[in-house]
């Protein structure tokens, strides 16, 4: 789970989190008492259809403003440690 979330945890953290998460998961088990047969899962409360935007392009962000917050950049590109072939996902 920590790998999926890209978190590296110390052994102490793992131990504490496991205990806490177990307690929380035990608690949420109470939902099993609820009969949800034929209940449609609700992912949003709005009585709306998704609004559509007109296909009009706006002026882009100034490239310097785009990278000004980056920990590392070169020109107008973001820079990250070298990606090794095969790390690619998606």
């Amino acid at each position: 789970m920590a790998v999926l979330a890209r978190l590296s945890l110390t052994d102490a953290e793992v131990e504490r989190l496991s205990t806490e998460l177990e307690a929380i998961l035990d608690y949420v088990e109470t939902l099993e008492e609820v009969d949800t047969t034929d209940v449609r899962p609700m992912s949003h409360v709005l009585p709306l259809a998704t609004p559509l935007r007109e296909d009009r392009a706006a002026a882009p962000l100034d490239p310097q403003a785009a990278v000004v917050n980056a920990p590392e950049s070169a020109g107008s590109a973001f820079v990250v440690p070298r990606v090794i072939d095969g790390e690619e996902e998606g």
């Binding site: 935007r53 296909d55 009009r56 392009a57 882009p60």
Partner: peptide, 21 residues
């Protein structure tokens, strides 16, 4: 003309991060 979820222009061959929102 613009991206799927933002008004950033769709471009090709621009310098890095010149068509972003």
């Amino acid at each position: 003309e613009s991206k799927l979820f933002s008004p950033a222009p769709v471009s090709y061959g621009e310098e890095p991060n010149h068509s972003v929102h």
